[in-house]
Design a protein around this nucleic acid. Structure first.
Length: 496
RNA sequence: GGUAACGUGGCCGAGUGGCUAGGCUCAGCUCUGCAAAAGCUGCUACAGCGGUUCGAAUCCGCUCGUUACCUCCA
């Protein structure tokens, strides 16, 4: 009855039917953030995209282990020997321990993602907690002859690796092109080839984040943590590796190289999945460009580019209304439209709760049943086609039209079979709540609403309409609220 | 410079050889005490120029425009 899930695999450049290596188990690794700043809309897209994949795989009854790392080792701004450690820079400026900076932004990341209703990963490893594993992996790569040590630092030997392997297989790069187009030939310092990348860096005397190793007191290279941690928790070969498109090269390319060059001898993941970027006026939203909007700013509306605040579910819907491999352009107009679309979907949920299948007198209409069943299938068809949530949402709106018509009596529920009715209801609910991960957001200001009720209470009292007064008191009491008639006016309190 | 994408109606955004995407906006109708919600109807599309084809937004070529990666970035 269900079609199969297809995923676009960057490694093969085509959509493939998703088949786990060891069904029913699925291992999924997602590159998490480097915790040296507040998460922005781009982080949200990645998190939400893979949250939907995680949710859908679970819905399909796979036993999923979802690993998303936290990068908390200070990486340098660039690969040259000189360069500031991003975390350390903030720590020094604010007179904090680097780990305080890391903890703070990790907390913020968790807080904001929770608002977006993303599920927590099953394992959330930190790079700093896996130094030993990373050192072990470097040893393996050295043993296999794909790395060399210089002055306490260890570098991956890309040209040596490329003799028997294909460096560039993921990002479609050719090593000769890379070499001839290297921008910066200076500052390569210890590296034999400009393409080589650090596996271990010797720390300068002033560098705070440092660990002992066979080569020097230092810190691991940027790409190594993901290789070491994915291997530790998911094995040499696992199913899905996700991340932003901007991580494809060099980060993921290097991960594959490290994995192949170590004793793993694999591409690490079978399916490499990349989400596209959020753009602002057609330009990528990114840290280095400074055109990013933090999630907390979106939620509060406190940013010069924002005309108003946008709720977490508005953001989530906004992200889901586009396909994850397309760029998505930010604008106030688009977010306001997303808000309305999201609300519409939520209202559908409420309508569904209200309609019921009649106990008797049903006269099923074959054509209508077929039509509705097709609409429910369409919802999943979009999802199965490379997680096209945009199509899923479009199909849900089509289904919603029917649901609303049934609610208003423009279509007769009795013209459906019980099975069709249940399928329609379950499809809508499951997709909206469990798979797309949308949820109702609390109504506006509750105290303001309570104030409104108190006004009616006062009016009723002045009119000596004591039956109404009693009803209001009783209803509020059910909610745990008592009304207090004071000489100075009317107030409320929590019932003790 | 190398590589890879993209260009869809007022806005956002799917589709990728013939069959209404969808949401938002706008106009009209039904419903309504007035509204709102909801339903129905309508309005502007596939960057340009060639080619392949019975038929192309969809395939091919060229032109123009935009972007991404090649440095940390989700």
């Amino acid at each position: 009855m269900q079609q199969k899930l297809n995923l676009y695999n960057t490694l093969t450049r085509k959509k493939e039917v998703f088949e786990p290596l060891h069904a029913p188990f699925v291992g999924m690794y997602l590159c998490g953030p480097t915790v040296y700043g507040e998460p922005h809309l781009g982080h949200a897209r990645s998190a939400v995209t893979f949250d939907v994949l995680y949710r859908y795989l679970k819905y399909l009854k796979y036993k999923v282990r979802f690993v998303r790392n936290i990068t908390d080792v200070g990486h340098l701004q660039n690969d040259a020997d000189e360069g500031e450690d991003k975390i350390e820079k903030i720590a020094k400026a604010q007179k904090l321990e680097p780990m305080e900076v890391v903890q703070h932004y990790t907390n913020v990341y968790h807080r904001d993602l929770e608002k977006l209703n993303t599920l927590s990963p099953d394992i959330e490893p930190r790079a700093s907690g896996h130094i030993i594993e990373q050192i072990e992996m470097i040893k393996e790569i050295l043993e296999n002859g794909f790395a060399y040590e210089v002055n306490g630092s260890v570098y991956f030997d890309v040209p040596a690796y490329n003799k028997d392997h294909n460096y560039g297989k993921l990002s479609g790069r050719i090593i000769e092109d890379l070499l001839s187009n290297t921008r910066d030939t200076e500052g390569q310092g210890e590296k034999r080839s400009p393409l080589d990348f650090a596996l271990w860096k010797k720390a300068s005397p002033s560098h705070i984040m440092r660990w002992p190793s066979p080569w020097s007191d230092g810190f691991p290279g940027w790409h190594l943590e993901c290789s070491a941690m994915s291997r530790k928790y998911l094995g040499d070969n696992f199913d899905i590796h996700g991340g932003g498109l901007d991580l494809m090269f060099p980060h993921h390319e290097c991960e594959i190289a490290q994995s192949q060059a170590s004793h793993s001898h694999s591409d690490a993941a079978k399916y490499w999945v990349h989400n596209n970027m959020i753009t602002v006026n057609g330009q990528k939203m990114g840290k280095s460009l400074g055109n990013f909007i933090n999630l907390s700013e979106l939620f509060s509306g406190n940013h010069q580019m924002l005309e108003q605040a946008y709720s977490p579910m508005t953001i989530r819907f906004f992200i889901l209304q586009a396909h994850y491999r397309s760029t998505l352009d930010f604008s106030n107009e688009a977010l306001q439209a997303a808000r309305k679309g999201y609300t519409k979907l939520m209202n559908g949920l409420r309508v569904l709760d209200k309609i019921q299948y009649p106990e008797e007198g049903a006269t099923p209409d074959e054509k209508l049943n077929e039509e509705l069943l097709k609409l429910t299938e369409d919802c999943f068809r979009g999802l199965n086609d490379d997680m096209n949530t945009a199509r899923t949402i479009a199909s849900l709106f089509n289904l919603l039209k029917k649901i609303n018509s049934l609610y208003l009596g423009q279509l007769q529920i009795g013209n459906l079979t019980r099975g069709t009715f249940d399928t329609m209801r379950e499809t809508y609910r499951t997709l909206v709540l469990d798979i797309l991960g949308l949820k109702e957001e609390p109504l506006g200001d509750q105290e303001e609403m309570l104030g409104l009720i108190l006004d009616f209470y006062k009016e009723a009292k002045e009119a000596k309409a004591y039956d109404k007064v009693d009803v209001i008191r009783a209803e509020l009491k059910k909610q745990g609220i008592v009304i207090k008639d004071l000489k100075t006016g009317t107030d409320w309190a929590y019932e003790e």
